[in-house]
Design a binder for these strands. Structure first.
Lengths: 204, 204
DNA sequence: ACCTGAACACCGTTCAAGT
DNA sequence: ACCTGAACACCGTTCAAGT
């Protein structure tokens, strides 16, 4: 842990995020970030032990942007959870290239811990407790993480699905039909639809 | 597309998978795979255009191992879907390091298309159709993908959760309590529990 | 024609040399 | 003491040189 000088961790993370948003995750390198900041490559090591720590800073920057304020307490628990999951998806989805890093470093993120705390508060208020609460939180997070990735690696209505439409209908009868149905389903509808199924199941 | 000679794509993929299982995804390199096969590095390029194509072969090898036979047709749709999702998780989970590759290349995978076809057949039999079927398939896949990743990057009962137990109970009252509850929840229970919530929601 | 080693343009990180 | 460029050990891939 060297003593920072003219740069805050946030500024460092912002520079790295700018590189990622511009050149993709593959474009992220110590050299590129240093250049972005107009400093020598080795200068970065004054702020960060290694590349992994830089990645953690980027993840923290993105996840700390998730609004974790309890949503409208007058609303039903269902609406409140929906708002919270939606916030996570929208905030992380704004930087899709960061998603893989987000997953690898999730444990160190204060942002996601705060988000989970708020979700748990709502669930507890709704009477979900004990092991069911454990499973519910984990289920919501799993769904959100998986859905964000699927969404950004090709929406069901995107080019990947078009390829599916061209599959042999003899071998894949249901897939070809479902791909046709999917053309009318937008990304938001898809995400919120899956979330609704989870929330329905939680309410049982 | 050069003409293969003494090696099948499966043998190539198996060698790469052996490297990954031994040295992790970070250990995967053209040089390492070539060495594993006792051939020159450039020899690989007779079989594969570039590293990305090698990765696709690995993904296909893993995903084609998913059993896509329709499960016991006498069982309820709910049990059948549960069996199918479980198979996906168990097969992919056997090679956790491959998961990131699996996601990036999922569209090219015949294995996952066949899996989805079987799931859709069961859903259709259960009366799920049209846009709801689209959302259901995508929801199940999102959940499975997210859960597999969370599971292998630290079970809720693992060391990550222990760190959560040490969080300030004042700032994270629900998280600390939930982490205690999570100690009794195994990985299987967690995965199947979340899946049960989804299936409950689908049955509504 | 087929195969492959050297070479090129990268990478993260060490370390000694500069101030 | 602080900073940094050269160097080291990697990487994917090109290409010319070997057979």
């Amino acid at each position: 842990m060297p003593r920072p000088r003219s740069l805050t961790p946030d500024q460092l993370a912002s520079a790295a995020l700018a590189v990622i948003d511009r050149d993709g995750l593959a474009g992220l390198s110590m050299r590129a970030v240093a250049q972005e900041l107009g400093m020598s490559t080795m200068g970065l090591y004054r702020y960060v032990r290694d590349r992994e720590e830089l990645e953690r800073l980027v993840v923290e920057l993105v996840l700390s942007a998730v609004d974790t304020e309890p949503p409208n307490p007058g609303a039903s628990w269902r609406e409140q959870v929906e708002v919270l999951v939606r916030r996570l998806r929208d905030t992380v989805g704004a930087h899709p290239e960061v998603v893989p890093l987000t997953i690898a470093h999730r444990h160190h993120s204060l942002g996601v811990l705060r988000w989970a705390e708020t979700v748990l508060a709502v669930l507890t208020e709704a009477g979900v407790e004990g092991e069911r609460r454990v499973v519910a939180l984990r289920g919501l997070l799993s769904y959100a993480i998986g859905a964000i990735q699927l969404e950004h690696l090709g929406a069901l209505s995107g080019p990947g699905t078009t390829a599916i439409t061209e599959l042999s209908p003899a071998e894949f009868p249901h897939m070809t039909e479902t791909a046709r149905d999917a053309r009318n389903v937008g990304a938001d509808q898809e995400f919120l639809g899956g979330l609704a199924i989870l929330l329905d199941g939680l309410g049982v």
